[in-house]
Amino acid sequence: MEYKEKIKGRVWVITDPDGKLFPNIDTDMIFHNSYLAITDINEMGQYIFDNLEGWEDFAKKAQPGDIVVAGSNFGCGSSRQQAVDGFVSLGIQALITESFGAIYFRNAVNMGFPLVRCDNLDTDKIQHMSEIEIDINSGEIKNVETGEIVAEAVPLSNVQKDILKSGSLFKYGKSALG
């Protein structure tokens, strides 16, 4: 993906049936195993979240440029690259959560897809369908309309930044390993 230092977009705040940030969203809820034969990234987006209670129509309503906020341990479960690729295919610009499953995190980093970690996400501050801007360098996430800082991101690791800037693991590997 193309590297951007500031990412601005409309935000989807993914909550569970109790209205809290949806925790432990696993790869089967993101991209169900019945679609695993798909290898064309352009076909993956339509199935994102269709097994996630309350968000089955996400893929139909999401627009390119949107940002997704969800609960902790996002992307736990399988090593499924499609669960990252599907968001890229929909044109989602970034994912913000308190933590990610380890494999999911790598998969996103490797394709240059920005995952943003915040220690404390407050859904009173980040409101569903509001417009926010993420500053990758400072970690500040603000509400575009009010200018209020709504969350602070944990700084990206060096490798995450390097891969983001080079665009993919493959490009990064060519320069890092020669």
């Binding site: 499924r80 690259q81 790598r106 490797n110 993919s168 693991l169 493959f170």
Partner: peptide, 17 residues
């Protein structure tokens, strides 16, 4: 366990970060 891109990279280089 790793995703498709990680493994393609490992096939080619024998390494991973």
């Amino acid at each position: 366990g790793m995703g498709d891109q990680d493994i393609a990279f490992a096939f080619k280089t024998g390494k991973t970060w």
